[in-house]
């Protein structure tokens, strides 16, 4: 039983650490688009490993297979990118401030302008991209 507790504690601590890092990123990073990275990535893995720990815990405790936590995991993995995309789109729509040193200004302008394709300068990029 001892090493099972060790594995469980490892997963629980890993999950908690990732959740904490996600929230630290949310509080610490300087502009909205950078903040968006922290919760979408860190929290999916955080909740994922907590749910793995929960699955193991209840499977061993009740000595029967208990895998219904996987529903939450799958749901979060499907919805996290969708909600990140929607939030980014909403932020582009209301023209949220970006950091001054953000690169790719023309792509940002094109995305803000309502999703029209960018100007000629980027079409050169496209040709380069398809050659690669």
């Amino acid at each position: 039983m001892n090493w099972i507790e060790l594995i469980l504690s490892f997963f629980v601590l890993l999950g908690g650490l990732f959740m904490l890092i996600g929230s630290i990123g949310l509080a610490r990073l300087p502009d909205f688009y950078m903040r968006l990275h922290a919760p979408t990535k860190a929290t999916t893995l955080g909740v994922g490993s907590l749910l793995i720990a929960s699955m193991l815990f209840f499977s061993i405790k009740n000595s029967m297979f208990s895998i219904h936590e996987i529903l939450i995991t799958i749901f979060l993995f499907i919805t996290a990118p969708v909600s990140a995309h929607m939030m980014a789109k909403a932020a582009l729509h209301v023209d949220t401030d970006t950091l001054e040193r953000t690169q790719g200004v023309e792509a940002h302008k094109a995305a803000t302008a309502g999703g029209n394709p960018p100007a000629k300068a980027d079409l050169v990029n496209k040709q380069k991209g398809s050659e690669n």
Binding site: T40, F77, A80, P81, V82, A88, A107, A110, N116
Partner: peptide, 28 residues
């Protein structure tokens, strides 16, 4: 593709252009 880009290293998908030819992403 947009979901994959959001979940993988250092990138988040922001928008798709109206004619579905460009995907705008933000890289950390």
């Amino acid at each position: 593709l947009a979901s994959t880009v959001s979940l993988t290293p250092g990138t988040v998908s922001c928008d798709v252009s109206e004619d579905k030819r460009w995907l705008y992403i933000h890289a950390l």
